[in-house]
């Protein structure tokens, strides 16, 4: 039996008095991509931030329910170790502007002691940049500032920074929303390869139905803080059971 990398049970999130995520449950099988789609403001990003406890940083947020990473509750873990195992890429490309390209990728392994020496660190950095399909473009200027890269390259650098943590789960919050189409395709491709070759489990939030269907094995449609529909992507795309899902595919929501 294939295990589940991530299991969410009855998850609620309140931001101040606002009930943003309203009892969400789902499971992500190992080495698959689950896309969460839905109109903006339905709690997708908030849900994602509950999965690596990044939401703990918000003093106004309250979370209820269970999240299991390979069967273990994330609330029994050190949040810092959890965030290494469950890495994240954001909507905005956000490399650290004051660090070189190399240091942006190396910082994660350095913080978590993933490399024993410089050679091992070099290897991880190269591996992560290759996996993010950025290596060929930056290998001759690893010590340049990331601010000299294009927006799409910066986003792939953010991806490489996340990958260098050697995560088991990768959370993506609309990673292609702010990059050009060519870079968007590269990022999608990189992510599919990662799942196939490295066995990473991916949760991919997007507001584009076409992208959701294209990249994922499983598809969740969220609306107003709830999961309206969840199933294998092709099935959901061809035969949406809920009229809301159908309307979202038609671009009416």
């Amino acid at each position: 039996m294939a295990g589940y990398a991530l299991e969410v049970r009855g998850l609620h999130v309140w931001l101040r008095d606002k009930h943003v995520v309203k009892g969400v449950s789902f499971r992500c099988p190992e080495a698959t991509i689950t896309a969460i789609m839905g109109p903006s403001g339905t709690g997708k990003s908030t849900l994602l931030r509950a999965l690596n406890r990044l939401i703990d940083l918000n003093p106004d947020a309250r979370v209820e329910g269970e999240v299991l990473l390979r069967g273990e509750s994330i609330y029994d873990m050190e949040p810092y170790e959890l965030r290494r195992r469950v890495a994240m890429v954001f909507q905005e490309p956000n490399p650290f502007p004051h660090m070189s390209i190399y240091d942006n990728v190396a910082i994660g392994p350095r913080l978590h002691g993933l490399a024993r020496d410089r050679r091992e660190l070099d290897k991880i950095v190269r591996w992560a940049l290759e996996k993010a399909m950025l290596w060929d473009e930056v290998k001759d200027r690893l010590h340049d500032s990331p601010m000299k890269l294009s927006g799409g390259q910066r986003q792939r650098l953010s991806l490489a920074r996340a990958l260098a943590l050697k995560p088991e789960v990768l959370l993506l919050d609309e990673p292609t929303a702010n990059v050009d189409p060519v870079n968007a395709v590269k990022i999608e491709e990189a992510i599919r390869d990662l799942v196939r070759e490295e066995g990473v489990t991916v949760v991919f939030v997007t507001h584009l139905p076409s992208q959701a269907v294209r990249v994922s094995e499983y598809l969740i449609f969220m609306y107003d803080g709830r999961i309206v529909e969840h199933g294998p992507s092709r099935e959901v795309a061809l035969n949406p059971r809920n009229p809301l899902t159908e309307r979202f595919f038609r671009g009416e929501l």
Binding site: L57, E81, R83, A87, E92, L111
Partner: peptide
């Protein structure tokens, strides 16, 4: 987004 980035790498 940069604050989140710092915490998101653990």
């Amino acid at each position: 987004s940069l604050r989140e980035a710092a915490y998101a790498i653990g």
